[in-house]
Simulated scan of single mutants.
Amino acid sequence: MPGPAVLRPYDPEWPLRAARLLADVRRVLAPLGVAESFEHIGSTSVPGLSAKAYVDLQVTVMELPVAAALVEALAPVGFVPAVGARPDSPGVHRDLPRGSEVVPDELWRKRLFTRDVDGPEASILHVRLTASPWARYTVWFRDWLRAHPEARDRYAEFKAAVAVEHAGDPDFDDYTRAKTEFFDAVQEEFEAWGRQRSRP
């Protein structure tokens, strides 16, 4: 995914695109019998939030299928394995550990796929283990921003400043890394909020 991060105003088409793609992904993954949840995540899932025009999707699985099986299953709906802009591109093969949970290192493993990266249907699919803290954090962070417009607006301002700072970059890897500062500042708050809402 070449080029720097370019943020665009929120587009109500994004959740519609996500719903269509998630339906396709659910259908093609059904024969594998491993998927447990399907979510629209990331900034395009938060109404009113500016974002890169890549719709982020998340599928959680009890066990990561063999890579070749996932590649074969997702190919008919246009998703191909992501390679990252650089050898150390964040989030391609594993998530960086964060948050309050101490878990085995293997739970941070993931698979990442992209679709139509240069076109109007640009999408990213994260396949994470159900037990991965990131699988929960992405949903909690999304829902926390939806429920707290002031936090959403602070995040929008932060992202805009970071995008300007990295406007000359050849890719958006360093923009992605720079956003960690905001996540670090709000992790405890949104995690506590998410845990409270998750209690029966």
Rank of each mutant, 00 (worst) to 15 (best):
P2N: 09
P2T: 08
P4C: 11
P4F: 07
V6M: 14
L7P: 05
R8A: 09
P9T: 09
Y10R: 10
P12S: 11
E13M: 12
P15E: 10
P15M: 11
L16G: 01
R17V: 01
A19Y: 00
A19V: 01
A19R: 15
R20P: 00
L21Y: 00
L22M: 13
A23T: 14
D24H: 02
D24R: 14
D24M: 03
R26I: 09
R27N: 15
A30Y: 12
L32S: 14
G33V: 13
S37Y: 03
E39G: 00
E39T: 01
E39Q: 12
E39L: 01
S43L: 14
S43W: 09
S43C: 14
S43R: 15
S43P: 15
T44C: 15
P47Y: 15
G48S: 15
L49G: 07
S50E: 10
A53Q: 14
A53P: 10
Y54I: 15
Y54R: 14
D56S: 11
L57N: 00
V59K: 02
V59T: 03
T60W: 12
V61E: 04
E63Y: 09
P65R: 11
V66G: 05
V66Y: 13
A67S: 08
A67V: 11
A67R: 12
A67P: 13
A69L: 15
L70T: 04
V71K: 11
A73D: 02
A73P: 00
L74Q: 04
G78W: 08
F79P: 02
G84H: 04
A85H: 09
A85K: 02
A85I: 02
G91C: 07
P97K: 12
S100P: 07
S100N: 13
E101M: 05
E101C: 05
V102W: 06
V102H: 06
V103C: 05
W108C: 05
F113W: 02
T114A: 06
T114C: 08
R115H: 04
D116S: 04
G119K: 02
P120W: 03
P120Y: 02
A122Y: 04
A122T: 04
A122H: 06
S123R: 00
S123D: 01
S123K: 00
L125W: 00
R128A: 05
T130G: 09
A131C: 04
A131D: 04
P133M: 04
P133S: 03
W134H: 11
Y137I: 05
T138L: 08
F141P: 07
R142G: 05
W144N: 02
L145M: 12
R146V: 13
H148V: 06
H148P: 08
P149V: 06
P149G: 10
R152V: 03
Y155K: 09
A156H: 10
K159C: 10
K159I: 05
K159N: 06
A160E: 07
A163G: 09
V164F: 07
V164W: 08
E165P: 01
H166A: 02
A167W: 08
P170E: 05
P170A: 05
D171A: 11
D174K: 10
R177S: 04
R177T: 07
A178C: 07
K179T: 09
E181I: 07
F182D: 03
F183C: 08
A185W: 07
V186G: 03
V186W: 09
Q187G: 14
E189M: 10
F190W: 13
E191I: 05
E191S: 02
E191V: 13
A192E: 12
W193H: 14
G194R: 03
R195F: 08
Q196G: 06
R197H: 08
R197V: 12
R199P: 03
R199S: 10
